[in-house]
Structures are given as structure tokens and as C-alpha cells.
């Protein structure tokens, strides 16, 4: 979520609460005979408030499971998740008097710290990466469909090269990707590249196309696999550019459009690879943030029950 002016009220509200909590904490901590404690009345109030905010922040996941419920806008929930979740950490610090206590409370504070830090990390990434993707990845697609689209790109490239260079050797099959159809394509159907759509009758193999065929089988087709090879002539954009320039010079001008099309396919493949990597950066922290939040909430409930009892 981008931090913009719409967050101002949340930020101010959270800061005001934090200031009030701090103003109350200082005299409490100075006056407490044995120092601040989670079991004292102020400590319990801080703990209760902090726990309530933690639960609220945790409910964001549940809210997402039922997007149709009219219980506030998703953006409002997300803003609350951000600022109230952050506020809850300070309230819990006040609750424990900045001590991490025994094994359970230590685990709780460690989990909470990791959850908060991972959330902040994710928030920072969300300020950077989406903008980067917007400018650098115009061919971005749905992350979950990347493998399926890569497979389609290869099929499209196979079709294109076969059209000008004759039948291709049987390729190593791509991992089975279930596609039930949808969008504008039926199951197994491949999107025709623009050059083929513009010249649908272009079916004669060029005699000089052996170079293209060899380059395709050796370098381009492996690049259109579901996992990018670490080396090869298309390993970097500059190398790819050089290779396609070389093909253009080696092949008749009539095949220039085909080479441009292949280059476009490779570029799209490259962008998808970058998108996958950025997506992992952008959402990978959730693999830490969400599971640990679950454990944190569970252990917090246990801690609350046991602490109140003893």
C-alpha cells in the first residue's frame, strides 16, 4: 500500500495515542516501586489495549477472506492494520515495561518484533517496487499466470519460427501447466503473434533461415523455458540485443519482422522473469509476516489467560 496523504489522519491519530500512552507511562514507570510490570493495573491496561490492536491487525487476513462483507473498505482496513498494528507494539512494550520477561513472553516479543519489522520491510518495498514495475515492466502480467504465459510465448515463438524456417525438432516439453481456457483463448490455443496476424499467408520457408533455426533452437527456445538459464547468449539484455542484430544482418530483410517478433517475445519473457523476482521481493516477506502473526496471536491469548490467572 502506498503511503500518501490519505494516511495522514491515521498517522496523526496513532501518534496522538502514542504520545498519550507515553505521557502516562513515564510517571507510572518512575513511580512504580518495583518498576513497571505487566501485572500492575497500568500494565494490564497497556496490555489489553495492545492486544486488542493486535487482534484488529490480525483480522485483516480474515477481512480479505470475505471481501464482500460490508465491514469497511479494504483500504481502510489496511491503513488500520498498518498504523494500529505499529501502535500496538509500543503499547505492548509499555505493558511489559520494556522487559521481555520469561520464555513465553520472550517468544511473544521476539515474534512480535519480527512481525513488525517484516511488516515495515514490506511497507517500504511497496513504496518502491510497484513503481519500478510500472516503469520497467510494461508487459507485467498476473503473477500466478507467469508460467502459463511463458509456455504460451514459447508456443507462439515455435509457431513463428516454424512458419519461416520449417518444422522444428521436438522440444523438451514444458512442465504441465493446467490451463482451463478463459480470456480469449480456448484450451491449447495459442495467441497468434501480430506478424502472423498481419501476414497470415506467410508460410514458405526461407532457404537462408537455417541460421535463424539454429539460433532459435540453441539460444532462444531455452530462454523461453519456465526457468531461465543462467548463461547463454540471451543472459543479459545487451547480449540479446547483439544477438538479434547479428541475426538481422545474417538473414534477408524480409525476415526482419520475424526477428523483431522473436526479440519481443524474448523481451516479454525477460520482463516476466524480472516480474517474478520482484514479486518474490514484494510479497516474500508475507511468508514470514503472516504465519508468525498467527503464532503470535495464539500465544498472546495463552499468555493473557495464564497471566491473568497467576
Amino acid at each position: 500500500m502506498l503511503l500518501d496523504a490519505s494516511h495522514r489522519r491515521w498517522v496523526v491519530g496513532a501518534l496522538v495515542v502514542l504520545l498519550v500512552a507515553t505521557a502516562a507511562y513515564v510517571p507510572y514507570a518512575r513511580g512504580a516501586m518495583q518498576g513497571p510490570s505487566g501485572g500492575s493495573w497500568p500494565g494490564l491496561i497497556y496490555g489489553g489495549a495492545g492486544f486488542a490492536l493486535m487482534v484488529y491487525a490480525g483480522l485483516l487476513g480474515a477481512r480479505r477472506q470475505v471481501p464482500t462483507w460490508r465491514i469497511g473498505r479494504a483500504t481502510t482496513w489496511m491503513k488500520g492494520h498498518l498504523w494500529l498494528g505499529l501502535l500496538s507494539y509500543f503499547l505492548i512494550l509499555f505493558h511489559g515495561g520494556f522487559r521481555w520477561g520469561g520464555p513465553l513472553t520472550f517468544a511473544l516479543m521476539a515474534l512480535f518484533t519480527v512481525v513488525i519489522l517484516s511488516g515495515i520491510y514490506g511497507l517500504v518495498l511497496q513504496q518502491i517496487l510497484p513503481r519500478m514495475m510500472q516503469t520497467q515492466l510494461p508487459l507485467e502480467t498476473v503473477y500466478e499466470q507467469i508460467d502459463a504465459i511463458v509456455a504460451q510465448l514459447r508456443s507462439e515463438a515455435d509457431t513463428l519460427v516454424a512458419a519461416v524456417a520449417g518444422p522444428l525438432p521436438v522440444a523438451e516439453p514444458l512442465p504441465a501447466i493446467e490451463r482451463r481456457g478463459g480470456g480469449g483463448l480456448e484450451r491449447g490455443q495459442v495467441l497468434a503473434r501480430p506478424v502472423l496476424r498481419a501476414r497470415p499467408t506467410w508460410t514458405t520457408a526461407f532457404p537462408e533461415s537455417g541460421v535463424l533455426r539454429e539460433a532459435y533452437v540453441t539460444d532462444i527456445r531455452p530462454f523461453l523455458a519456465s526457468r531461465l538459464p543462467g548463461d547463454g547468449r540471451l543472459a543479459t539484455p545487451r547480449q540479446g540485443e547483439a544477438m538479434f542484430q547479428h541475426l538481422k544482418m545474417a538473414l534477408p530483410p524480409a525476415l526482419g519482422e520475424v526477428i523483431d517478433e522473436l526479440q519481443a517475445i524474448c523481451e516479454e519473457r525477460r520482463q516476466l522473469a524480472v516480474q517474478r523476482r520482484l514479486h518474490h521481493w514484494l510479497h516474500g516477506w508475507l511468508l514470514v509476516h503472516v504465519p508468525l502473526s498467527m503464532a503470535l496471536l495464539l500465544l498472546s491469548i495463552v499468555h493473557a489467560i495464564v497471566s491473568v490467572r497467576y
Partner: peptide, 20 residues
């Protein structure tokens, strides 16, 4: 390298509608 004939709308045809 993007081709104006290769629009987002055309590319969207690749996306499976029920992928989620």
C-alpha cells in the same frame, strides 16, 4: 519493443479467468 498491435487487451486473452 512493445508493438501497438500487441496490446494489453490482446495479451489479456492469455490470462485464465479462474486462475485465482
Amino acid at each position: 519493443m512493445a508493438d501497438d498491435r500487441y496490446t494489453t487487451k490482446i495479451r489479456a486473452k492469455r490470462i485464465e479467468l479462474q486462475y485465482f
